[in-house]
Amino acid sequence: MKSLILRDLRLAVRSGGGFALTLSFFLIVVMMVPFGVGANLDLLARIAPGVLWIGALLSCLLSLDRIFQLDWEDGTLEALATSPIPLSGIATAKATAHWIITGLPITIAAIPLGYLLNLETEAYIWLVASLSVGTPALSFIGAFGAAITVGIKRGGLLLSLLVLPLYIPTLMLGAQCVTIGSETPIKLLALVAAISLFCIALIPFACAIALRANLK
C-alpha cells in the first residue's frame, strides 16, 4: 500500500498538473466571488467561511476522476485487483494519495485566500482545523464516486451529481464551524472529524464493491 501511495504521488508530480491545477482552481473560484457579489468587505467577511469551504470542495471534485480512471484505462487496475492487496486497501491508498495531493495543499492555501476574503482573525484557526479534519472525508467520499463511475466514459458530470450530495453534511458542519458567532465550534469540529473517521473506516469497503462490479 505504501508503494501505491508513493507511486500516485510521483505520478501527480510528474504530470505536473497535480498540485498546481487544484490550487489554481481554488484561487480562481475564490477570486470569482468578489467579482460576483461586489467588494464589500463586511459582506465578504460574512460569507468567507462558506466560500472557502465550497471552493475547497469544488477543487477536490475537479481531480476526483483521476483517482481510478487512469489506472482503469491502462490495465493497472485489473492487475491490482488480481494482486494480493484487497480492493479496499487499494481504495484506501488511492484516497490517501488524493488527500495528500489535494486536501493538504487546499488546507494550506485557504489561509492566504481567507485573507483575500477578509476572514475574521479569530476564524483562521477554525478554518485550518475544520479543513484539515474535513478534507479526508472529501477525498474518501470522492474516491467512492470515482469507483462507481470508473467504467463510464465521460462520467465527469455524473460523478459531480453523485458526489456533491454526499458532501452536504461535511460542508454544512465544516463551514458552520468557521463562522464566527456559532456558539460551539469545537463541537462542530468534532462532528466533522467524526464524519471523516467514519468515511475512512467504511467507504473503502463500498469502493471495493463498486470496483469489483465495474471490473466484471
Binding site: P165, I168, P169, L173, Q176
Partner: peptide, 16 residues
C-alpha cells in the same frame, strides 16, 4: 451509502 449520508444531512441541517 447515500442513505447514510442522507441521514447525516438530516441531522447536520439542525446545526446548520
Amino acid at each position: 451509502v447515500g442513505s447514510i449520508f442522507a441521514l447525516l444531512s438530516r441531522y447536520a441541517v439542525n446545526f446548520w
